[in-house]
Simulated scan of single mutants.
Amino acid sequence: MAILPIRIWGDPVLHAPAESVETVTEEIRALVADMYETMDAAPGVGLAAPQVGVGLRIYTYAYEDDEGSPWRGEIINPELWMTPTEPGDPDPDTESEGCLSFPGESFPLRRSDRVVVTGSDLEGEPVRIEVSGWRARIMQHEFDHLDGTIYIDRISERDWKTAQKISKKRGWGRPGSSWIPGIDDVDA
């Protein structure tokens, strides 16, 4: 297993729809193992294959709730259904999120509170996840990556302008930008 470089906003793989996985091969299994290691090292609660430069419809997730119950897995070729999003502005205290591909920052974003995700696991077995709250947010965030959308593409215009200033200051927004968890300091 290896910790992979995480692509930063502006890299083309992050802005293009990912391709379906036709067959789970040993290379796909190795990729997923590396994605878990990279996600854990970052640390993150989810990681999509495009974030490590691979344009395939795969993501991993890991979240521990307030009671300490772990929730971890991978989804290949997911499909997402969600309840309508509540109208109004997001609460910056309870609805902010960040992204490993726009590291060190967070912005408020309204998401659906309930989702259902279907797909398969590494064994080809069907996966069906029905979740709410932060788990639903994680599913939507990672699914967006597979469609070439990063959460900052969805934030308010005012926050978008702030994100653009941050990106320019840090030299992001161009092909080839990446960071390696445990090696690079991306919060500077």
Rank of each mutant, 00 (worst) to 15 (best):
I75V: 15
I129T: 02
S101L: 04
D89P: 02
G55I: 00
D93Q: 11
E74I: 03
L47D: 07
G46P: 03
E97H: 12
P84K: 10
T94M: 08
R137W: 04
P84L: 11
I75D: 05
G73M: 13
R137V: 13
P78Y: 05
T118E: 15
S132F: 01
E67Y: 09
T118Q: 13
L122A: 10
M35N: 09
G73L: 12
V52W: 00
W134F: 15
T162W: 11
M82Y: 06
D113C: 01
P126T: 03
D153K: 07
R111W: 03
G124H: 08
I138N: 03
R137Q: 04
A33H: 10
V131N: 01
D66T: 10
E37Y: 02
I75T: 09
Y59R: 02
E125L: 14
I152S: 07
G44S: 08
G53R: 07
R110M: 04
D91M: 02
D34W: 08
P103K: 02
T85F: 00
A48R: 11
G73P: 02
E130Y: 02
I155D: 02
A42T: 11
H145L: 09
A30K: 13
Y151C: 09
T94W: 11
S132K: 11
Y59E: 04
A41N: 09
L80G: 06
A163V: 05
E27W: 06
E105I: 00
G124S: 12
G98E: 07
E37N: 09
G73T: 11
L31N: 04
I58E: 01
G133S: 15
T94H: 13
V115K: 07
S96V: 00
M139S: 00
E125R: 15
L56E: 14
E95A: 00
V32T: 02
L56D: 13
V54A: 10
I152D: 05
H141I: 10
Y63Q: 08
G53A: 12
G104S: 08
T83A: 15
S106I: 00
G104E: 08
P43A: 06
I75S: 05
D113M: 11
L80H: 00
C99V: 04
L146D: 05
Q51I: 05
M139H: 03
Q140T: 15
P87M: 12
P92W: 11
A33E: 15
S156A: 12
S112I: 01
E97K: 09
I129G: 05
R135K: 15
I75Q: 06
M35L: 12
P90W: 10
E105T: 05
P78H: 03
T162Y: 09
P84R: 10
L146F: 04
P126N: 07
E86N: 08
D40V: 12
A62K: 15
I75E: 08
V131K: 13
T85A: 12
M39Q: 08
G133V: 01
S120V: 14
T162M: 07
A49Y: 01
D113L: 10
I152C: 06
I152H: 06
E125Y: 09
D113V: 04
C99M: 06
A42L: 02
D66M: 09
M39A: 07
L56V: 15
P103T: 01
T94Y: 13
V115L: 05
V54H: 02
D159R: 08
S132P: 00
T162Q: 10
W134S: 05
G148A: 09
D65K: 12
D65V: 12
I58Y: 00
G73N: 10
A41R: 13
L31W: 03
R110V: 04
E64M: 14
R57E: 10
Q140R: 11
